[in-house]
């Protein structure tokens, strides 16, 4: 039996008359990469925000490791072990690369309200931070100002910050977005290795990446999950091809 790490049950969200999330249930099991795909406007971003706690759901529950976190905000959910990366890089751009990962390590360890000890000399935090940088291949850029990083490096840094959290589950919102062929290849390698550490809910547009990585795929169309299954099943499913991949799609 596999453990369910992240679970959504019957999530609902409406904006006025528009039902953006319509009774969505999904689960991310330990050791898997679960991809969530869907055409533009399917409600992926809204669903992500409901999972992270940035948006309150009209109905339904979110559970992390069997614990109900529905009533918790984003800060508490992060503290409970939901690590995430953002569609648009959310980093402290004026800070160095190392400072960004140290912040992550600090959030994980606690002790933010220390006013006198220099944080960039804290060995315990630096170890976690450097380790995370090494894993995404940014060790050499540690002292670079974050705004000077290339787009691809910023995406890697996002993952490094998520790694410092030693999260129970990763929620990655389009980590491939804007990456070139080579960058996407590196990111795919990186995510493949992460799966053993914590399962990943991967929201992604890049179908090559999704089919290369995912153990299971859920398809979201107009706020509903119309199918969940192994990549081969999804590939063969006629309904999805019509709804999403287009009539002429060849995969």
């Amino acid at each position: 039996m596999t453990d369910i790490i992240l679970q959504a049950r019957g999530l609902q969200k409406s904006f006025g008359a528009l039902r953006v999330t319509d009774d969505v249930s999904l689960e991310v099991r330990s050791g898997e990469i679960h991809a969530l795909i869907g055409p533009n406007g399917a409600g992926k971003s809204t669903l992500v925000q409901q999972l992270t706690g940035h948006l309150e759901s009209d109905a339904g529950q979110v559970a992390l490791c069997g614990q109900d976190v529905t009533s918790l905000g984003p800060v508490e959910r992060a503290a409970k072990g939901l690590g995430r990366t953002f569609q648009i890089s959310a980093l402290a751009m004026e800070n160095s690369v190392l400072q960004n990962v140290v912040l992550g390590a600090l959030g994980r360890r606690g002790g933010v309200f220390r006013f006198f000890a220099p944080v960039m000399k804290d060995r315990a935090l630096l170890d976690v931070a450097n380790n995370a940088l090494a894993r995404v291949g940014l060790r050499a850029q540690a002292k670079v100002r974050t705004s000077d990083l290339s787009h691809g490096q910023r995406r890697q840094l996002e993952v490094a910050v998520a790694l410092t959290q030693s999260p129970k589950a990763f929620l990655m919102d389009e980590p491939m977005a804007g990456l070139g062929l080579e960058g996407a290849g590196q990111m795919i390698d990186l995510l493949r290795k992460l799966r053993a550490e914590a399962p990943i809910l991967l929201i992604e547009h890049d179908m090559d990446a999704v089919f290369a990585l995912a153990d299971r795929i859920s398809v979201l169309v107009y706020g509903k999950i119309i199918a969940t299954g192994a990549p081969e099943d999804i590939r063969r499913n006629r309904e999805i091809q019509l709804a999403y991949l287009g009539k002429e799609a060849e995969l």
């Binding site: 800060v75 992060a78 980093l91 402290a92 800070n95 912040l103 959030g107 994980r108 910050v161 410092t164």
Partner: peptide, 14 residues
């Protein structure tokens, strides 16, 4: 960091 990007700070649990 919270000045530069509050969402980042939130997402590491602060």
């Amino acid at each position: 960091s919270a000045r530069q990007n509050p969402v980042r700070v939130q997402s590491v649990g602060i």
